[in-house]
Amino acid sequence: MINIQQNKVKDEMVQTVNARHLHKNLGVKSRFNDWIKIRIHEYGFIQNVDYILVTEKIVTKTRGGNRKATNDYHLTLDMAKELAMVEKTEKGRQIRRYFIECEKRLNDDILSIGMQLERALLEKEHLERVLSNAGYVLNKGGRHLKPILLAKINKLQDELQPSLPFKEHIR
């Protein structure tokens, strides 16, 4: 339906909706600029709280070097739901339910990720304990085994060392 994106609003990353897309999908008959300004004023929405304003300057290649600025409004999901609701149309209700479903899926995903992270942290703690215990056993056992193993290595070395019978010839 309507693309939901992440934007920074009041130093926080939140889900937002492009107001022009909302206006188009709602099927509002009035011009976009008139509609959004009236709704902001009528319902007391606050810039950088309920929406952010993005101004894009377009330089046209005419003789006078005219410049044109377009304003894009990125609405928080709460503001978009309210605007969809106040249109009092079936399309508005559908869009509002769509936004609610998107939020629900996001919250479910966040909960699932949180549970996976918790499981991973528990597994990490378990592995750290296992490795710590293994290190302790190897350290303690190694102290006792080292002299025994060194003696066996020396014995094997002596056994494998070639011995040739040399007769000393003195002339």
Rank of each mutant, 00 (worst) to 15 (best):
Val28Trp: 08
Thr55Arg: 03
Thr76Asp: 09
Lys152His: 04
Arg171Ala: 11
Arg105Ala: 05
Gly27Asp: 08
Glu101Asn: 14
Leu156Met: 12
Gln15Gly: 01
Ile38His: 03
Thr62Glu: 15
Glu168Asp: 12
Asn25Arg: 05
Tyr136Gln: 08
Asn71Thr: 14
Met13Ala: 02
Asn107Phe: 10
Lys155Arg: 12
Asp158Met: 11
Thr55Gly: 04
Asn139Ile: 01
Leu160Trp: 12
Ala19Cys: 00
Ile36Trp: 04
Asn7Ile: 02
Leu111Gly: 01
Glu128Phe: 01
Glu123Gly: 03
Ala84Gln: 00
Phe99Lys: 03
Glu12Trp: 02
Gln6Cys: 00
Lys68Glu: 13
Thr62Phe: 11
Gly92Ala: 07
Asn71Tyr: 14
Ile38Glu: 12
Leu75Pro: 01
Asn3Met: 12
Lys81Leu: 10
Leu53Arg: 13
Arg63Met: 13
Arg143Ala: 15
His169Leu: 11
Leu83Gly: 00
Glu42Val: 09
Ala120Met: 07
Ala19Asp: 01
Leu150Gly: 10
Lys24Arg: 10
Val49Arg: 00
Lys10Gln: 14
Thr76Cys: 07
Glu118Leu: 10
Ile38Trp: 07
Thr70Pro: 04
Leu117Ala: 11
Asn107Lys: 11
Asp109Tyr: 08
Arg129Gln: 14
Phe99Glu: 01
Ser112Arg: 12
Lys167Ala: 12
Lys68Met: 07
Arg93Thr: 14
Glu101Arg: 13
Glu128Leu: 05
His169Ala: 02
Asp11Asn: 14
Thr16Lys: 03
Gln47Gly: 00
Ile40Trp: 05
Gly141Trp: 03
Tyr51Val: 11
Ser132Val: 03
Ser112Thr: 13
Ala80Gly: 09
Ile113Thr: 10
Glu87Ser: 11
Tyr136Arg: 11
His41Met: 08
Met85Val: 12
Leu83Val: 01
Lys88Ile: 09
Leu53Gly: 05
Ala84Gly: 03
Ala134His: 05
Arg105Val: 07
Leu83His: 08
Asn133Asp: 15
Asp109Trp: 10
His74Leu: 01
Asn139Gly: 06
Val14Thr: 12
Gln47Trp: 06
Ile100Asp: 01
Val14Lys: 09
Gln157Phe: 04
Lys124His: 07
Gly141Phe: 06
Tyr98Asp: 02
Ile52Glu: 07
